[in-house]
Design a protein around this nucleic acid. Structure first.
Length: 810
DNA sequence: AGCACGCCGACT
DNA sequence: GTCGGCGTGCTC
């Protein structure tokens, strides 16, 4: 057949900010792009009546003309030369969108580094210059004006008026912020032959130029970074520019990676000798790597039992089989210590993805991985999407950590994504923890996961001795409201021996709230249903939900009395008490307030590690992953704060936290001691944490969960609706409840609608429903539909959240 | 977001 | 009868 040219059609997921579907749109591939276009590329397409330019992802390319009859528009351009997402990523996005009830477009975006996500820019072009001079002067010489949300409302209204009269048009731009870093290099043109000619042409006093010629001669054939060359020889950039003009050198730009760990010291570390228990684990996992089995292992090992060494040696095994490895750790444990240990073992093969990286650095690490230049990827939650091929093993440390679940769309849990990828790559997934989540432990029970145990600490040290202090008793004779006599004595003892102490407090701020003793008035946030927290460092009252800040009242705003008092406890207040009780002790305070700035967290820990302080006082963040040999005493000031919360996981969280923080005591050659102060001495979570009996806690908690119909016995989905007024939020949820009762079988439970524990946050009102079920074939379809439908109410102020396997019911 | 379609009230 | 209000729905 002659001249029978087949047209190419692309299935594209479009990124329209206000309207999202999981349905791909069909676009015609213009002939000049037919050669280049591939699934996984980003493109710019016209959309809607105004054919404004938006970003899209190409899912598929084929000759198949769609059956239905609609206008088919042409792809405008491709944003990539090679696909940014491979076949695996596209499949994963499919699964994720369905599983997490989110839009495919947000799943695709989530897999890419920030800089590759589309930014839309609007600008206005003046078409008719015959307008008010006041308006005309806003436009630049190209008759363009940037159009963003910062624009003055009055001007905005005028612009809209002009647009109606066709005097201006709105131009859309799809931006790709991904930039490859270019570095300038110097290539010398000076040789032993030509240098004398140049030298002779200079005046006698031109010492700098002569020096330049000599340095350039020294370079020979090597090229050198311009910045380095200038710095080392104290030339200015102008000197180099002049030399270039004289034809002494040429400047070449080369693509380089931003190197975030350039100045990090890494000493190489070699594999450590394994204990018998570790050896069993490593052997089993290595076998699975070799046989390409997608088993999930639950590596349950007490603190200090050497889980990390098991990870490192199994990774090494995967590398030996020329496979790659993915290792996930909670953000908080991505400390320099940890980075050093992994980099020390695998050197330049490692790519790190953590939140301290700038967008550019993250993009560069991503490209290194994508090009196959890194074989080991270590990172927090989103690193689970690292574009690795040939994965031989996936490791998730501290698998019970709730930070693996993203708390915005798409609400994925990195653990589930890791297991999905394990299946896709036919490789084992290792979930490690001292205190596994009940879900994972239960799957281990049913042999869905293979359990691996590390019951002994590596150097044979006993577990730290844990003492419970009943604060109801202790307060009668306590030296201060937050310190029992027992704890204070212990602190003094350990400090006397020049050892370090870690104190954990379950709350931040100075004192949790301010109350009037005369009338009982409590100062509350004007935007949220929560009392304000006192912060002594800034001398203000802050809301921990919306950030509202106001000054500390001297007289009660309600009854005008001056009997206003502080109640509760916070890290700042405890710090002051410590200074009074132990004036000579050096205290480091670590909480959200002192670690807000980038790297502050690491710097504080390093200072403590160098023994620049005796006591580290902090909130929960100090429970994770820090490992200091001189810490021999851990004190928990208030073990119970989480227990009072109306949440089915509060016992589990409390147990995990106490076990973890206890593990911080006495890791090296010194015995550790732990003192836990509590008002609920008899509570099982506290009792079992005290004796470090995970298995007994697990058994007890499972009974409770079974009786109450909670996970892991039931699946749960939480639906939350919020509006700027309570009535609408409430009404929407009753409507959803009505629909749900049509869809669900008798065996499913619908809890609610109820207002959230903190119903109003930032002047939005939240209502929620929790569904508990075993098998509901129609539920998924209903929720997908609800997700799409609810968009129509978004302009009216609705925000709807569907959260599968919610972390909490609060 | 932006445009068309459509159903109700006020109007030349 | 007709013009135009905006509520509703759709965008390959």
């Amino acid at each position: 057949m002659r001249g029978e040219r087949m047209s190419l059609y692309a299935q594209v997921i479009v990124d329209v900010p206000t309207m999202q579907t999981n349905k791909p749109y069909t676009y015609l591939v213009p002939s000049e792009l037919e050669e280049q276009i591939q699934a996984g590329m980003r493109c710019v397409v016209p959309f809607g009546k105004g054919s404004r330019k938006i970003q899209g992802f190409v899912l598929d390319v084929s000759n198949q003309k769609p059956d239905e009859d609609f206008e088919i528009k042409k792809i405008i351009s491709l944003m990539d030369f090679v696909p940014v997402l491979n076949e695996e990523a596209l499949q994963l996005a499919d699964w994720m969108a369905n599983y997490t009830f989110s839009f495919k477009i947000s799943c695709l975006q989530t897999m890419l580094p920030n800089v590759m996500r589309a930014g839309y820019e609007k600008s206005i072009r003046l078409l008719d210059e015959n307008v008010e001079p006041e308006i005309k002067k806003l436009f630049d010489q190209n008759n363009l004006l940037a159009f963003d949300d910062k624009m003055d409302a009055k001007i905005r209204r005028k612009i809209y008026g002009l647009r109606k009269k066709d005097k201006v048009e709105i131009v859309y731009h799809v931006n790709d912020r991904a930039r490859v870093k270019e570095t300038e290099f110097i290539k010398s043109k000076i040789t032993a032959e030509n240098i004398s000619a140049f030298l002779n042409a200079q005046r006698k006093t031109a010492t700098k130029k002569k020096r330049m010629l000599e340095k350039l001669l020294d370079l020979g054939n090597d090229s050198v970074e311009r910045i380095k060359f200038q710095k080392q020889n104290s030339f200015t950039s102008n000197d180099v520019k002049q030399a270039e003009n004289s034809g002494w050198l040429s400047l070449v730009s080369k693509e380089t990676y931003r190197n975030p760990s350039e100045n990090a010291t890494t000493e190489s570390s070699s594999p450590r000798k394994l204990t018998a228990e570790q050896n069993v684990c490593v052997t089993r996992i290595n076998q699975a790597i070799e046989q390409e089995e997608s088993d999930v292992f639950l590596l349950q090992g007490v603190t200090g039992s050497g889980k990390t060494e098991v990870y490192l040696q199994t990774i090494a095994h995967a590398l030996k089989l020329s496979k790659k490895a993915l290792m996930l750790v909670p953000e908080i444990s991505l400390t320099p210590q940890m980075v050093r240990r992994v980099k020390g073992r695998f050197g330049p093969k490692v790519a790190m993805l953590h939140s301290a990286l700038s967008d550019g650095e993250r993009f560069d690490e991503w490209r290194r991985i994508e090009r196959g230049e890194a074989q080991v990827v270590v990172g927090a939650r989103s690193a689970v999407f690292a574009p690795l091929d040939r994965i031989g093993i996936i490791i998730m440390d501290e698998e019970h950590e709730t930070s693996y679940k993203q708390d915005e769309m798409p609400r994925y849990n990195a653990r589930e994504v890791a297991i999905w990828r394990g299946k896709h790559h036919h490789c084992p997934v290792v979930l490690g923890s001292a205190t596994p989540s009940l879900e994972s432990r239960a799957r281990g029970q049913k042999s869905v996961y293979q359990r691996l145990l590390l019951t002994k600490r590596i150097n044979g040290r006993p577990m730290p001795h844990v003492e419970l202090v009943d604060m109801r008793e202790a307060l009668k004779s306590a030296p201060s409201p937050d310190f029992s006599a027992e704890l204070l004595t212990k602190i003094k003892e350990h400090l006397k021996r020049d050892e370090q102490v870690v104190l954990m407090l379950n709350r931040r701020g100075y004192s949790s709230f301010v109350m009037c003793r005369e009338c009982g008035f409590v100062l509350k946030c004007p935007n949220c249903d929560i009392s304000l927290t006192l912060h002594m460092d800034t001398h203000s009252m802050k809301c921990h939900y919306c950030g509202h800040e106001e000054s500390i009242p001297r007289i009660c705003p309600s009854c005008r009395s001056n009997k206003i008092r502080y109640y509760g406890t916070g890290t700042q207040k405890v710090e002051e008490q410590l200074h009074e009780l132990l004036p000579n002790a050096r205290v480091l305070r670590m909480d959200v307030d002192t670690t807000r700035r980038k790297g502050a967290h690491e710097r504080l820990l390093e200072r403590f590690g160098r023994h620049e302080a005796d006591i580290l006082l902090g909130t929960q963040m100090i429970a994770k992953g820090l490992d200091f040999p001189d810490v021999t005493l851990v004190g928990v000031l208030n073990a119970d704060t989480a227990l009072g919360l109306p949440d089915f996981r509060s016992s589990e969280k409390t147990f995990q936290l106490l076990t973890q923080v206890s593990g911080r005591a006495g890791r090296a050659d010194k015995n550790g001691e732990v003192v836990i102060q509590t008002f609920n001495k008899e509570h099982y979570a506290i009792q079992f944490a005290c004796t470090q009996e995970y298995e007994r806690f697990y058994a007890y908690e499972m009974q409770l969960r079974h009786r109450l119909g909670y996970p892991p016995y039931y699946f749960t989905i939480k639906i939350t609706a919020s509006y700027d007024n309570e009535a609408d939020a409430c009404r929407k949820m009753y409507e959803i409840r009505r629909e749900l009762s049509q869809v669900l079988s008798k065996s499913a439970k619908i809890l609610g609608p109820t207002p959230k524990a903190i119903m109003r946050v930032n002047n939005r009102y939240y209502y929620q429903i929790v569904i508990e079920y075993k098998k509901e074939p129609r539920l998924e379809e209903y929720l997908q539909d609800l997700l799409v439908r609810s968009q129509t109410d978004e302009p009216k102020g609705l925000k709807l959240i569907i959260d599968r396997d919610p972390i909490s019911f609060m």
